[in-house]
Design a protein around this nucleic acid. Structure first.
Length: 192
DNA sequence: GAAAAGATCTTCT
DNA sequence: GAAGATCTTTTCC
């Protein structure tokens, strides 16, 4: 799983990976149903970042972040909601990209069902929301994104003028770091 | 062994 | 706009 890795393009620092992931698509297979979304908002985290779960080294909770690029790191926040990360960088270095918002491309009705009737931008414009919509939970901890049940599809990188960079949201440490990226003008980007 | 904090969302006033 | 819901991991005594 070192050379020939199809996720070699994620084997870089978390900020670059966060930008490259914008515009890429995720495909979720539930039984015989297919859900597909486009990534529109991300945040970068790594081991040198006080706000990151990986900043104090590996633990049982975050060890997925120390795996090789192309795995997932899923965790429960506030006892209620799941957050979904894509691991990047090389194995042994704890870095990853939080997926903050996605745009539904296919299977929107199924997502509405998973979200108990909510629709429109309320479907996936937040980290916990998109996990509900796509039925991502602890079963996807350390999942490999080349498997059919949840697959990452690379698209061409966006030009830098289509990417807006700001400070991150909802954290109490390292608030000033500019490590949040989103597609300029997209409706599904979370507010604030 | 116990307490506190946490990369959030929904609901109510 | 503000507070409640609810549970896992970490840190401290």
């Amino acid at each position: 799983m070192e050379k020939g890795n199809i996720f070699e393009w994620l084997n870089t620092d978390s900020e670059k990976a966060a930008k490259r992931l914008l515009g890429c698509e995720l495909e979720r297979k539930i039984g015989n149903k297919i859900l597909r979304v486009k990534i529109v908002e991300t945040e970068a985290y790594d081991q040198n970042d006080e706000a990151s779960h990986s900043c104090r080294g590996p633990s049982k909770r975050n060890n997925a972040m120390f795996m090789s690029a192309g795995h997932t790191y899923v965790y429960l926040i506030h006892g209620i909601h799941y957050c979904f990360n894509i691991v990047c960088g090389k194995e042994g270095f704890g870095s990853g990209v939080l997926i903050r918002a996605v745009e539904p491309l296919f299977g929107e009705k199924e997502m509405e069902k998973n979200r108990k009737g909510r629709a429109g931008v309320e479907l996936t414009n937040g980290p916990g929301k998109l996990c509900q919509a796509l039925k991502i939970d602890k079963n996807f901890f350390a999942h490999n994104l080349s498997k059919a049940s949840l697959k990452l599809i690379k698209k061409d990188s966006l030009s830098s003028k289509d990417i807006t960079s700001t400070t991150r949201i909802g954290i109490s440490k390292a608030k000033d770091k500019i490590r949040r990226f989103y597609i300029t003008g997209n409706k599904f980007v979370s507010k604030f």
